[in-house]
Design a protein around this nucleic acid. Structure first.
Lengths: 219, 219
DNA sequence: GTACGATTTAACTGAATAGTCAAACCGTAC
DNA sequence: GTACGGTTTGACTATTCAGTTAAATCGTAC
């Protein structure tokens, strides 16, 4: 049987196999989706026998879950943390935009994968938030929205911001950052850009979005 | 062999079978994705033998394409038309928001399906635009962006709008409308709403988005 | 009512695919 | 070097699934 990390490291043949499998699975699941991915293809990409996949992760389902959790953990926590933090609103917006766009520029397939997964298996949404924050959704919600609401109310009372529900605030901010990557293929075709052109478009967006978004909230 | 619409209508047993199959396929492909859908399930949902699917649509791939085209045709044309029209900018924004949100409120699974499809088969993006508009992307692009650019420039010169690239304009507008539906599962969990609550959230959004978006463009 | 062609079905086929198993391998401990 | 336990493999199995086929059905025209 497989041993834990500590012991495994003792004999380590040529790099951690389990990790190589997970990396390969990550790549394949992201490009094909869970249903479209083949264990064969993952094995080939990892350079191992197909039976090894089952040795390390009992089933395709389990492997898919491991990949999903890993992806979720790498994606959400920073954003949630920033949103729930006590940073001034303006800085929050700026940080979220930069975090998201930098993150997604590095792995542009992520949003479509996540959207697709959570769409086909509604349970994944809960898994996602939980893996991402270590908290159940019921705990995440007040942390994010209560702070936001308080900050927005302050500004509104001071007359420096127009009123907006914190849910709409968060939804719009995330939409503006994530959607262009989720609908990447469409956007590239519509704007007539290639890989490089799309990256330029997103770099520009990273600069302009904060003032666009905050501009919308001026009274 | 199957006959064309004209002749088929002559004997029509209990409602057009081909249509029933297409409806069932539509439903199943949308909830499972193309790779996850099973011909068996579609047949069952249509209340017919599995062989009939192959009788009317040679293969799963052909059936998937038929569904995709049908979905695309019902989704994009109005939006593209509005964007490319000569309506004043403010009205364009309002119309796009209303069109999109009304449309998506009726079929909330659509965005995730389209994103997923175009993600896994890059060819679909081209098919999509083409089916949606009857034009190749090269023809759609100038129609949309040239008009937008002209309108934006006018406002900028008049000092009533801050400058923005038409690509970013369109991208942001679509993001704000579509993303909440694409990431619906996530949004519902994060905001702690059920089906009904989500609908209310979107109804509110429909009202607020135009002024939010236009507000962002004030100088 | 008989014949005909379009439609529909039950039963089948073959390929793809997730998952299993027993044997080979390999590094370490003795 | 021999034994041992974790690791890896090739060959296999069972199942799921798209697609086929031949026969049954059904409405229409004669």
């Amino acid at each position: 049987m497989k041993t834990d990390g500590q012991v495994t490291r003792t004999f380590e043949h040529d790099g951690d196999t389990e990790q190589r499998i997970l990396d390969a699975a990550h790549a394949v699941f992201l490009r094909r989706g869970t249903a479209g991915a083949r264990m064969q293809e993952i094995a080939k990409e990892a350079g191992v026998n197909q039976a090894l996949l089952h040795y390390y992760f009992r089933s395709k389902e389990k492997l898919a879950e491991a990949v999903f959790q890993r992806v979720a953990r790498g994606f959400m926590p920073p954003v949630i943390q920033v949103l729930a933090s006590d940073l001034p609103l303006e800085e929050k917006v700026e940080r979220v935009v930069e975090l998201e766009i930098d993150n997604l520029a590095r792995s542009p397939l992520l949003p479509a994968y996540l959207i697709s997964e959570m769409h086909h298996d509604p349970d994944r949404a809960r898994q996602f938030l939980q893996a991402a924050t270590g908290l159940v959704p019921e705990q995440v919600r007040p942390r994010v929205f209560d702070t936001l609401r308080r900050q927005i109310d302050e500004r509104v009372r001071a007359g420096t911001m127009r009123s907006i529900a914190p849910e709409q605030f968060a939804m719009s901010l995330l939409s503006l950052c994530i959607f262009p990557f989720a609908a990447r293929a469409m956007m590239m075709l519509l704007t007539g850009t290639d890989q490089k052109g799309f990256e330029r478009l997103m770099a520009r967006r990273r600069k302009e979005l904060p003032s666009f978004f905050l501009g919308a909230l001026r009274p």
